[in-house]
Design a protein around this nucleic acid. Structure first.
Lengths: 326, 326
DNA sequence: AAATAAAATAGAACCGGTTCCAAAAAATAG
DNA sequence: CTATTTTTTGGAACCGGTTCTATTTTATTT
C-alpha cells in the first residue's frame, strides 16, 4: 500500500506538503504538478483511518431500521442511499429486528464508528433513547416518529387518517372494524387512528370496534381468522397495508368476498396493494421524498445550521376496488 | 473522550500495560484489578480508528446488493446480519441500483474501508469484476452466481428448474410460454431455464416459446400485456416470482382467469405468492440458509482456511392454486 | 543466599495521516 | 538594491491505539 510518505519521498518534498496539496492548501504550481503526477502514477489513495483518527468523524451516515424486510423501510432506504451517494457519503445500515434495546445499542455502536450523523427509524421513543442521543456527540434525526426536544421528520399521519375516515364515512358504512397497532407507536397507533376517528365525528351514527394487533403479517392474519367470522362490520380499516394484506388472505381462507362482504383499506401505498385482487384502497405515502428531505435535514444538523424541529411529508388517498358504498 | 493515556495515567502505569490488559496479554493480578476498576469507572472504550490504523482491517463485512427493494435480497440480508452480529461484526450494506459499474466501484470503496470481507450479490461477472477482486486485498464471496476461480455460494438453480419443468410437464400441458431473463445472468437466465427445458425432454411434443424480459416488475407487466392476448399457451412459466406477479396483474387487467385460462408459476418462494389469489406455484429457495452458509464460508476465507469453491443450497417445489392439469 | 529463569512493566517506535509553527523563498514596495 | 510583506515549505507534534525490546521485578532452583 502506498502512503503519503512514499509520495513525499518520490516528490522530494515533506509529507506535510503532500497533505496540503491533497487538501487544497497553499502549494506552488511547480510542486503541485510534481505531486499530482506521482499521485496519479502510484494510484495513491489516503488511508481512511489515519484521516478519521484526526478528523474525529467519517463520511458515513448511520441508519437504524427496525426491519429490512419491509416495503416502507426499503423505499426510504433506497432514496436515502441515492442522495447520500451523490454527496460522497456512505450509508451504514444497522438492523434492530424490532428490538428496542438494540436501537439504543446501535446508537452507541454507530457513534463509536464515528458516523457523521444518525437517522433513527424508531417506533417508540423512550427515556433511554433520549439519554443515548444526548450522550453521543452525533446529530440524530428521527424518521417516522416525533419526540419532544429531538429533530424529526415524518408523515402527515393525522391527515392520512382523516382522509381515509372521511372517504370511508362518505361511502355510508356504519359498522367499522379497525385493526390498529399498539398505542405506544405515536405515529401509527395514535395519530393515524385519531385522524380516522376525527373524520368519523361527522357521522354520529358510526360505530367502530378497535382491535389491537402488530406489524407482523402472521399475527394480523391469525387475529383476522378469529374475528372475521363473527363481525358485523361492513368496512374493515387496517392501520397498515401489511395488515390489510393479512386480512385479505384471511378473507380468502374463510371464503369471504371483498368488497361484497366487506370493504377493506390499508395505509402505506405498498406496491403489492395494486397487484392483488381486488386491488386495495390505501393512502400513498411519500417515502422517496421522506428519504430525501431526511438527508437534507441531517446535513443541516451536521453543519449546525438552523432547522425546523419537525417536518411532515404529505400523502394521497388512492381509491381502489376493495372499497364500495354500503 | 477518555483515551488509553487517561487510563494509564490514572492507574499509574504505562499505556502499553493498559493495552496489554485490554488485549489479554500478561498483566499481574494487582494491576489488572486496578486498571479494570478505572476502565469501568470511566466507561472507556477504545477508538476504532486508532485500532484499525494498526490492524489494517475492521470488524465490518461489506455486502454489495443490486437492490434493496427485493424480497430475496432482504431475506438474505436479514440472515447474514443476524449471524454476523453474533460474531461481533457489523454489516456494511452498499446498493448498486443494478448498475454493474457500481459493483466494481463498491468493491474498491469497501476495500478502502478495510472491511474484513466482501459478499457480492452480482448478476454477471465481467473481466472487471475479476480484476477488482484480484486487486483488493480482501476475500470476496459471490452470492447467487458462480465464476471461474472465485469462491461462491448459490442455489441449486438447475434442479429448481428441473423440478418445475417436471411438474408442469406432468400436468400434461403442451404449449408453454416462458418469461426468462437475459442470458448473461448465468444462474437465472441459463441454469434455471436449462433445468426446465431439460425436464421437458421427456415429452417430445411439448412446445415452449421463450421470451426475454427483466427483473423489473413494470417491464414484465408491459410485456405480458402485449403477449397474453395472442398466446396459445396453457401454462406460463416465469423465471421469478416477481415476473409471475406481473403476469398475474396483466391477466387481471385483461380479464383473463388463472388457472382456467392458463396455469402460472414462478421461482423464489416470495411470501406474497401465498397471499394473492390464486396463490402461485413456485420453488421456495433457502434464503436464510444461503445467508448463514455465506457467513460461514466468508469467515473461512478470512481465516485462510480450506473451503469448497462453490456451495449450493437446495430448494423445494410448492404446488398451489395457480397450476392445474390441462 | 546466590544464581537462574520467568513474568511483568516502561518506554520507544510505529501505523498514516493533519496541523501548527517557524524558517526559507519569492514577490512587492520603497 | 535593500527592506518589507506574502507565499511556500519542512519539521515536529499530534491523533489513540499496538507491539517490540530492554529492563525491572518476582518466582524458582540449587
Amino acid at each position: 500500500m502506498v502512503t503519503i510518505n512514499d509520495i513525499a519521498k518520490k516528490a522530494g518534498v515533506a509529507k506535510s506538503t503532500v497533505s496540503r496539496y491533497l487538501n487544497g492548501g497553499s502549494v506552488s504550481q511547480k510542486t503541485k504538478a510534481k505531486i499530482e503526477r506521482i499521485v496519479n502514477e502510484t494510484g495513491y489513495s489516503p488511508n481512511t483511518f489515519a484521516q478519521s483518527l484526526k478528523a474525529k468523524h467519517t463520511k458515513m451516515i448511520g441508519i437504524i431500521v427496525p426491519r429490512l424486510d419491509s416495503y416502507s423501510a426499503n423505499e426510504v432506504l433506497s432514496s436515502i442511499d441515492r442522495k447520500l451517494r451523490a454527496k460522497g457519503y456512505q450509508l451504514l445500515i444497522t438492523n434492530t429486528d424490532q428490538m428496542i434495546e438494540r436501537e439504543i445499542e446501535n446508537i452507541y455502536t454507530l457513534a463509536k464508528q464515528k458516523v457523521a450523523g444518525i437517522i433513527l427509524m424508531a417506533t417508540v421513543i423512550t427515556e433511554e433513547h433520549h439519554k443515548a442521543i444526548a450522550e453521543v456527540d452525533v446529530p440524530v434525526l428521527l424518521l417516522g416518529q416525533q419526540a419532544e426536544g429531538l429533530h424529526s421528520i415524518g408523515h402527515q399521519e393525522f391527515e392520512a387518517g382523516y382522509a381515509m375516515g372521511n372517504y370511508a364515512g362518505s361511502l355510508e358504512h356504519k359498522n367499522f372494524l379497525y385493526f390498529s397497532v399498539f398505542k405506544e407507536d405515536v405515529a401509527v397507533g395514535q395519530l393515524r387512528a385519531n385522524g380516522v376517528l376525527s373524520a368519523f365525528e361527522k357521522w354520529p351514527d358510526i360505530h367502530v370496534d378497535i382491535l389491537e394487533t402488530s406489524f407482523s403479517f402472521q399475527k394480523a392474519y391469525e387475529l383476522a381468522l378469529e374475528v372475521l367470522p363473527k363481525t358485523k362490520a361492513t368496512y374493515i380499516l387496517c392501520a397498515t397495508d401489511n395488515i390489510a394484506m393479512a386480512v385479505l388472505k384471511a378473507a380468502h381462507t374463510l371464503n369471504k368476498n371483498i368488497p361484497s362482504d366487506f370493504s377493506l383499506s390499508g395505509f402505506g401505498g405498498y406496491e403489492v396493494t395494486s397487484i392483488v385482487s381486488p386491488s386495495i384502497t390505501t393512502v400513498k405515502y411519500g417515502y422517496k421524498e421522506l428519504g430525501e428531505v431526511a438527508v437534507d435535514q441531517l446535513f443541516h444538523l451536521i453543519n449546525r445550521e438552523e432547522v425546523k424541529n419537525n417536518v411532515l411529508i404529505s400523502n394521497t388517498l388512492i381509491k381502489r376496488e376493495s372499497t364500495i358504498p354500503k
